[in-house]
Amino acid sequence: MSDEPHEVIVRRAEKADIEGLVACSSALFAEDAGTRDPGVDINWPREQGPQRFASGLADPNRLLLVADRGDGEVVGYLTGTLVEPSAMRPVKVATSVGMYVRPAYRRDRIGGRLVDAFRVWAKESGAGSVQVTAYASNTEAIRFYERNGFASQSVTLEAAL
């Protein structure tokens, strides 16, 4: 691998990107949940992803971003969703549901660019805050999000039955 950064465009996903979204989502599930959470179906992206991503393209409450090498090859993605205010939490929240960057591209600040674009979308959509979840054992992801301005808000504890 070269020390030169890769030329990558961060943009909204299009219909032609669905295959790349599924591939990156599959890699995320295999690398992250597949090694940390036996309760997650790692086949979900291949089985349900195409329909889920396609339905999100036109949904104003969902964001699908891709990192594209400039030739249409998707090397990363971020998906987000908006949660409307409620009586209990009277602020609109934008949640990053999934993010992945192929390992060869991880030192090129692509993840940071995806998060920056997510924040812009959240603000333009009227969100008062942004949030993301990460597995507690995924210390690299947690450090990445902390470097990008996120702080721990709560901890979810789980016990297998």
Rank of each mutant, 00 (worst) to 15 (best):
M1A: 15
S2V: 15
D3I: 13
D3R: 03
D3L: 01
P5L: 07
H6S: 03
H6M: 09
E7N: 08
E7T: 14
I9F: 15
V10D: 10
A13S: 12
E14T: 13
K15N: 12
D17L: 07
E19V: 03
G20S: 12
G20W: 10
C24A: 13
C24Q: 13
A27D: 06
A30S: 08
A33G: 12
T35H: 11
P38R: 10
P38Q: 13
V40P: 05
D41M: 11
I42C: 04
N43E: 13
N43I: 15
N43M: 12
W44V: 09
R46W: 14
R46F: 04
R46S: 02
E47N: 09
E47M: 03
P50T: 04
P50R: 10
G56R: 05
D59N: 04
P60C: 07
N61A: 02
R62Y: 10
L63V: 05
L64P: 03
L64R: 02
V66T: 09
A67G: 13
D68E: 12
G70A: 08
D71T: 07
V74C: 00
V74A: 15
G76Y: 09
G76T: 00
L78Q: 11
L78N: 08
T79P: 00
T79C: 01
G80N: 02
G80K: 06
T81C: 09
T81Q: 06
L82Y: 13
V83G: 08
V83L: 05
E84R: 03
E84L: 00
S86D: 15
A87F: 07
P90I: 02
P90Y: 06
V91N: 06
K92D: 00
A94E: 09
A94R: 05
A94Y: 04
S96R: 04
G98Q: 06
Y100P: 15
V101I: 05
P103T: 01
Y105K: 11
D108Y: 00
R109H: 03
G111N: 15
G112W: 10
R113F: 06
L114R: 07
D116V: 08
A117S: 01
A117F: 05
V120D: 14
A122P: 11
K123Q: 15
K123Y: 04
E124C: 10
E124W: 00
G128D: 04
S129G: 10
S129R: 04
V130N: 07
V130R: 01
Q131M: 08
T133Q: 01
Y135E: 03
S137Y: 10
S137A: 12
N138L: 10
N138H: 15
T139H: 04
I142E: 03
R143D: 00
F144W: 06
F144T: 11
Y145H: 09
E146L: 01
N148L: 08
N148V: 08
G149A: 11
G149K: 10
S152C: 06
S152A: 14
A159R: 12
A160C: 06
A160D: 12
A160Q: 13
